[in-house]
Design a protein around this nucleic acid. Structure first.
Lengths: 132, 132
DNA sequence: GGGTTCAGTTTACAACCGTAATCGTATCGG
DNA sequence: CCGATACGATTACGGTTGTAAACTGAACCC
């Protein structure tokens, strides 16, 4: 289900951190107008509407968002799936810091107490599934 | 073992990706001169020595490296530990993409086949330790 | 001891990022 | 019909990053 070959971003353009916040809003609900996106991210970041518009434009330019005209304005919709983005970023980190192996990442998270009891239980059951 | 209070980078300066490659070289062996670092990273990136020097200077400015005079040149040594850097970056990713929970990260890595059989075995034994 | 060499420092410069203000124009209310 | 609005597009601008050349001063070799 998606992620297999869907490369996303044409040419390997990367999504910046601020842009990512905009994507998150649109992954929650889409399509949305610029104003709606501004309102949606308003809780997290303190951006002027102008800033949101700039980010939306850049994301469209990067091929991460599609626009659909709705009267005099645009509605924006993600062109890449959150799962693909998240997977890509995770992989990048694992590659860059752990030589592509996930186990050391796990060890680090565990060591730094970033794992809650629920996390551990959850991961355990995931492992059970994987082993089948 | 380190990481407890060793904050690293003064003021929260971030290490860029290119700079990180330099840090990796110095985490493997330190101290090293600029020329030695250039040689060490030569395999990975195709940088001119000038580029390496720039990166070293920036890292010193950021408080990530210490310099020690050795005749007419400097020897560079990391001021932050790799474990701290890696831990911080991992945490940042988990916070940004998974709301701070590590389990979904694993779900993603698992789903995207980023987990090898060894990874799974290794994580399993780590889990056993954690549960004690 | 004067040129060559080597090392760090300064300067460069385009792309990208965060953050916006301004501009131009289509629309809407009166 | 006209001014106020609401939008997207254009322009801005300082900081960071990647990548490197030019500069400068010290050390070393004839």
């Amino acid at each position: 289900m998606g992620g297999a070959k869907a490369k996303g971003l044409l040419g390997g353009e990367r999504i910046s951190e601020a842009e990512h916040a905009v994507m998150e809003a649109l992954w929650v609900r889409a399509p949305m107008s610029a104003a709606e996106v501004g309102e949606a991210v308003g809780g997290q970041r303190d951006w002027s509407l102008a800033t949101v518009k700039t980010l939306l434009s850049r994301l469209v330019a990067k091929g991460a968002l599609a626009t659909e005209a709705d009267g005099r304005r645009f509605l924006y919709t993600p062109l890449i799936e959150r799962a693909d983005y998240v997977g890509g970023e995770s992989r990048r980190l694992v590659d860059r810091l752990f030589g592509g192996r996930a186990a050391p990442l796990f060890a680090h998270l565990a060591e730094s107490e970033a794992l809650s009891a629920e996390d551990i239980a959850e991961i355990e059951s995931l492992l059970q599934e994987l082993k089948q």
